[in-house]
Amino acid sequence: MSWIAGDLGREQIMDRLPAIGEHFQRLYASFYSLSQLPPETVELCRLRLAQLHRSDADFALEEYPLAAGKREQLQDWHNASPFSAGERACLELAEVHAMDCSAITDAQADAVKQHFGEAGLVALLQALGVFDGFIRLGLIWQAAPAGGKQHD
């Protein structure tokens, strides 16, 4: 139960200030229809952030379906086979971003650009910032995600 607004979920709490909350949710949704980044890659990065924040509720969400095995092997993506080179570049950047955004190296940024271009790097950094924000809001409000579909 959230201390800030009773038994409401995270997105329902956002809806209580719709003049801002709706814009936030539209921006969040826009990351799954980008021309620069495949939605599956975006979803992998969101799920990896959820793991790093230890947010089981966010990891249980399914904003975009993944190919078989990817969700299960995500924690060990460095060694697991189902991830493409582009996905690996994004996951590596996502991990550093989560810990210290100033520690991202030129090589890590270049690896993302090699696969998805400059616009892909910008879009990924935007998405990581918003996903990180949603996860942190859920944690600090003590409110589980209310939007999206639960992974089976």
């Binding site: 936030f24 910008v122 600090i140």
Partner: peptide
């Protein structure tokens, strides 16, 4: 309540956009 929501959402917004600017 609305003030706490505003505070929460603005911190989430500025935190994400600030991280983006640094990166």
């Amino acid at each position: 309540e609305h003030e706490l929501l505003h505070l929460s959402l603005l911190v989430a917004w500025f935190n994400g956009s600030s991280r983006c600017a640094v990166a």
